[in-house]
């Protein structure tokens, strides 16, 4: 029997705004399956985003949804989670929103290890504004504001998250649709700040500027570059050149922020 996605979709809110061939819908379906698998209650789940194509995702979800300002999802979500630690808080956003304008909030959410899950849909471009380069755009690539090739080096978002202190970091791709829900579900179940980077495609503003002839070609590219972590262990550096590791990249148990603050409350009340 086909999976019933509609039980988590807000009635009357589709069709979505995403272009044909955009992978964001694939990620949303993965998120829905993950939320379902984890048994989250819709009214107890906050989905928080910033601004951009990916950040429109919460509006379609039948939960408590908060579409904030550009880059600020992690900071708003931190307030929601601190105020309501019993809620499940999931963040969704793009690479520009999360790692450029929102970069400071992102690294500090990682550092605090607050129990939330951040899904970053990395399509390497600012799609909503028409295709400007982001911190995830590879050097040399074309964007509307890098007509002669991008001079900037790109972030490795997963490495950034690990370096900043996130205690669960995973990476998938929009091509590997069946893996997305499993990565997100594991992230949700992890206690601490979890980051799931999904490599995504933007055929409209990135693909056509960078010699991808079709969506299929972009999807095949995601398929070609992805190497599961386990498989990579047996590969040489030469074989891994141009490849991207997928799966659970990092996992660690560390004190979670809301629990740490609960201890602050205990200490304050004991001293009273």
């Amino acid at each position: 029997m086909a999976y019933d996605y509609e039980k988590f979709i807000r009635p009357g809110k589709l069709p979505h705004i995403w272009c044909p061939g955009c992978g964001h819908g694939i990620v949303m379906k993965g998120l829905i399956r993950a939320i379902d698998a984890c048994g989250l209650k819709k009214e107890n789940t906050a989905i928080v985003s910033g601004i951009g194509c990916a950040s429109r995702l919460p509006g379609y979800m039948d939960c408590c949804t908060l579409h904030t300002a550009h880059g600020r999802a992690a900071a708003f979500a931190t307030g929601v989670k601190m105020s309501r630690p019993e809620m499940d808080v999931i963040l969704v956003g793009g690479d520009g929103d999360g790692t450029a304008i929102g970069g400071n909030h992102f690294i500090h959410a990682c550092r605090r290890n607050i129990n939330m899950t951040y899904i970053i849909l990395n399509n390497k471009i600012y799609g909503m504004t028409g295709g400007q380069f982001s911190p995830a755009t590879p050097t040399g690539d074309k964007a509307s504001t890098t007509p002669y090739g991008n001079p900037d080096p790109a972030f490795d978002i997963a490495k950034l998250a690990i370096g900043a202190g996130a205690t669960f970091v995973a990476r998938g791709t929009a091509f590997h649709a069946n893996q997305i829900d499993k990565l997100i579900a594991e992230a949700i179940q992890h206690k601490g700040f979890s980051v799931v980077e999904i490599l995504d495609d933007c055929p409209t503003t990135y693909g056509r500027r960078n010699k991808f002839k079709s969506v299929i070609e972009m999807m095949n590219h995601l398929k070609d570059i992805a190497v599961p972590v386990k498989a990579a262990e047996k590969m040489s550096p030469e074989q891994l050149k141009g490849k991207v590791l997928t799966g659970v990249l990092y996992k660690e148990d560390k004190p979670e922020y809301c629990e740490q603050y609960a201890k602050v409350i205990e200490r304050a009340q004991a001293a009273k």
Partner: peptide
């Protein structure tokens, strides 16, 4: 909560208020 910057503080404030 002491946030990472003034903007983050305002964002967390609004999030907390929504809670």
């Amino acid at each position: 909560i002491q946030m990472e910057d003034e903007i983050g503080a305002m964002a967390a404030l609004l999030g907390g208020a929504l809670g």
